[in-house]
């Protein structure tokens, strides 16, 4: 059985490998430095590291969509990626 029906491309494969690496990284982080106790941040809800990662990934998807929809034509997509990294740092620090 081949995976041709899944229509893989190099960029999408790298994207999913990246997501898998982030998930594994979170596991390693927890193993090395346990401390994922819930805390209440700026959203007023208790979140753990996993929740913050979820919010980061979800928010990053919307930042990229917003970039595609709102940025001037021809603006490189990594502009959205830079914003997402800043957003991720803010989420892990303040949420």
């Amino acid at each position: 059985m081949t995976l041709a029906w899944m229509a893989w491309t190099t960029p999408t494969a790298l994207f999913f490998i990246g997501v898998a690496c982030v998930l594994c990284g979170m596991g390693v982080w927890h193993w090395m430095r346990p401390g994922g106790e819930p805390r209440v941040g700026v959203l007023g809800i208790a979140t753990q590291r996993g929740d913050r990662l979820f919010l980061t990934l979800l928010g990053s998807a919307f930042i990229h969509l917003g970039w595609i929809g709102l940025a001037p034509e021809g603006a490189p997509l990594w502009g959205g990626s830079i914003l997402s990294i800043v957003y991720a740092a803010l989420v892990f620090r303040f949420v």
Binding site: M6, A7, T9, T12, F16, L65, I68
Partner: peptide, 29 residues
């Protein structure tokens, strides 16, 4: 994953795909 792969490509059937980047997202948005 398959849907994500489809969303960045164009196809005319016969399991042939052509890279489209973010064009479809721009079109939808």
């Amino acid at each position: 994953m398959t849907v994500v792969n489809y969303s960045v490509q164009d196809t005319f059937g016969n399991n042939q795909f052509f890279w489209a980047g973010t064009a479809w997202y721009e079109q939808v948005l």
